[in-house]
Design a protein around this nucleic acid. Sequence first.
DNA 1: CGCATAACGCACTATCTAGTTACTTCTTAA
DNA 2: TTAAGAAGTAACTAGATAGTGCGTTATGCG
Lengths: 219, 219
Amino acid sequence: MDATPDKSKNGGKKRRLRDAEATKLRILEAAKSDFAKNGLGGARVDVIAAKAKANKRMIYHYFGSKDGLFQTVIENAYLDIRSAEQKLHLDDLEPREALERLVRFTWQYYLKNPEFITLVNSENLHRAKHVKKSELIKTASRKFVAMVSSILERGVRSGDFRAGIDPAQLNITIAAIGYYYITNRFTGSIIFERDLMDKNALNERLEFNIDTIIRLVSA
Amino acid sequence: MDATPDKSKNGGKKRRLRDAEATKLRILEAAKSDFAKNGLGGARVDVIAAKAKANKRMIYHYFGSKDGLFQTVIENAYLDIRSAEQKLHLDDLEPREALERLVRFTWQYYLKNPEFITLVNSENLHRAKHVKKSELIKTASRKFVAMVSSILERGVRSGDFRAGIDPAQLNITIAAIGYYYITNRFTGSIIFERDLMDKNALNERLEFNIDTIIRLVSA
DNA sequence: CGCATAACGCACTATCTAGTTACTTCTTAA
DNA sequence: TTAAGAAGTAACTAGATAGTGCGTTATGCG
């Protein structure tokens, strides 16, 4: 790819020498990567600026502070997974299928986006002070919880699922059995004396998780 | 409590003006607390020294480096939980009871020792480089996995549990459903719009988790 | 074109931070 | 009792580190 900017067309958008949106995006990408790798405390603003091929001054110009930058990064991370979940169109599937699809999706999302997990860990280390401020995240969360509630209700009506399951508990459990495995893959591989990230190990875990959830909800 | 050291008896041990063991312990306690609160990258050696009422030089004298200090802290953390698990004497219980007891214990251990979780998160952020070096942790882990294997085997023989369950997967799942809830209690409380640390919420979660595990293993 | 504005960059500061140097004070074994 | 080693301290260093002040250059609008 040609990194030299010019004024010719490029994917329908004009290439510019100076492009605020593009710079912001580069900063956000670099920040996501560095925050995920080193945590909020361990990440370095200078490193993020260098990675983004942007001047550090720009970070402060666009995001105000290191905390402000993290705030935007974690917000985008949540909006991204919530948006991907909505695109699954689980309401079009049979309850059982919908649930299995959600377990699969969650697992694969964590696998493909391990930064998401590390960012969430970092955010919890800081007592969710950034997420607390984000109305966007709160709105998206409500939709997500409603989606799982609706699957559960349909499953109870169809006789597939037992009644009385708390959607929040189910949600937490679906996330937990994937999240824990991935976030603790390094210590886990030592404790269980096997490579938890081996292809077969990953497949086995996914099947185990689907089984766990189906057994949990079955009538 | 009297903080002024003297040479009188104190719990069978002589109080000293200078006590290497006591100082080491104070440093380790302070380090555990600060590493848990701020992560390895965010913790400050000066803060740890101050909290421990020790001179920073002592940290370097006893532990060599900040990393060396973390190494000892994480090692002790693992040995502590593994030792507590052994004391449950699960082999003396019926398989079902033993499993339930383990789920309860794990939950309560995380609740009472949230630093353990944060330390493990920090260690995984650093790709388990400290745990990797610890033979003590590896030995203790083997005993732990064997313990759960033995419960599973007994349960299969008694007809309570179904056959073919991978002990490692079960172990991971038992840890996951408690660990995730606790470690993400701050973001979780926002996403699910309820206080996850409320007494009733905690009890509900524990019962849900026991149910999840029993359904998972039942024949 | 030309000018106001937004994008960008350099070089700086004040403070912090892991680790060290060189020293004093206490403990204990012979 | 005493000498040698262990425990403990204060003050320091060299390099980071978040955040800024201020000047420069591109952009796009009238």
